[in-house]
Simulated scan of single mutants.
Amino acid sequence: MSIFPELLPETTSGHSTAALGGQRFRSIDVCAGAGGLALGLEQAGFDPALLIDIREQPCETLRLNRPSWNVRCLDLLDFDPRDHHGLEDIDLLSAGLPRVQASAASNRSRGSSHELELLMATVKLAQSLRPRALLIDNVAELAVAGAYGGIREQIHDKLAQLGYRYKWFVLNAVDFQVPQDRKHGFLVALQGDLIDGFQVPSPSRQSPPTTGEALLASMASRGWAHAAEWARLADKVAPTVVGGSWERGGADLGPTGSKRAWARIGVDGGTVADEVPGPDFSWDPSLGRSGMMALTTAQVARLQGFPAEWLVAGRKTARYRQVANASPPPLAQAVGEAIVTALAST
């Protein structure tokens, strides 16, 4: 378990943030992961009646942070809401789904992509639960790219049959105070005319912190003398944090292109550190990886917009996978607040 001790509590995850007019709404969150989507939605005004994920480590993460949440570790493809009590009158079904790849989109006839199966299973679940709203978070391309047009058409047909109207859109987390260039594609569907009250969130008027600003306190927490110097170099937001596969490989910050982007701000993207630099760490990026420091999982969580007190269960690689694949909570909160406005308009 990681408790992120080297990060200061710059944000708060308070359980009971009031929604519009003090009203709270009920939700179900599937493929919940580390809880980024659920946490942001909680801040927006949603209390989950149920959260599910297939992996034990994310389920433990959710339980550690919110012992009162009803967390079930099971495969979405095997989930039957009739086996669970208290799932009536759900306001929102939310899903931060594994990334649907373009290869699955262009070869619909096979229907063998697990990620695509999860996407369609979520839409099917909306048919069973009939929530007032549906939120799906995935790759930006799913919302706009021509290669995914066939999938969007399938979803449109099903939602139209169920009486939902919807919007696809792309948001960048950097526009919502997250110190990272990270685009997400969203589908928001609402029953009937509720969609008329939904407005895609507008970017924050404030600039996000740079990578250096976001991580300076943690970099200096063990006495590293060059922390401020590094922070001045890291004067831009972070590159997109890449989660990688659960099935293979250790924790690192992504493919070759991502590693080059991290190297430009003096960070070794080829691994994830166990702790931040100490007082004797010699930082010299001209030496290559040996002269650069790696980020910790806690620091990656900060770049994802998680509050410092959020716990993450498992060993280092499992913790990193959870954090890196998560929906940034501030981005989820912005979308959640827009949904709350639409739901509260009736």
Results as ranks from 00 to 15, higher is better:
V241P: 00
V178W: 00
K167H: 14
N172H: 08
A234K: 02
Q206I: 13
F198V: 02
S218Y: 04
D235P: 07
W224V: 08
V170Y: 02
R182T: 07
N172G: 02
F169C: 00
L194W: 10
V200R: 11
P203E: 07
R165C: 13
S218A: 03
K167Q: 15
K236C: 12
V178A: 00
A189F: 09
L215P: 01
P201C: 06
Q177G: 11
S207R: 15
S207N: 14
K167A: 14
S218K: 02
A189D: 05
A227E: 09
D175M: 04
A173G: 02
F169M: 09
V200I: 15
L171K: 02
M219Q: 10
P179I: 03
Y164D: 02
R165Q: 12
S204W: 02
V242T: 12
W168Y: 14
A227L: 03
L190Y: 04
R232F: 12
S207Q: 15
D175R: 01
R232S: 15
V178N: 01
T240Q: 06
Q199M: 13
R232L: 13
K236D: 15
P201G: 08
Q199I: 15
L233P: 06
N172Y: 02
A238G: 07
W230I: 05
A238I: 03
Q180N: 00
R182H: 12
K167C: 14
D181Q: 11
W168L: 09
W230K: 01
L233H: 10
Q191S: 14
A234R: 03
D175P: 04
K236F: 11
L190T: 09
E213F: 08
A220P: 03
Y164G: 04
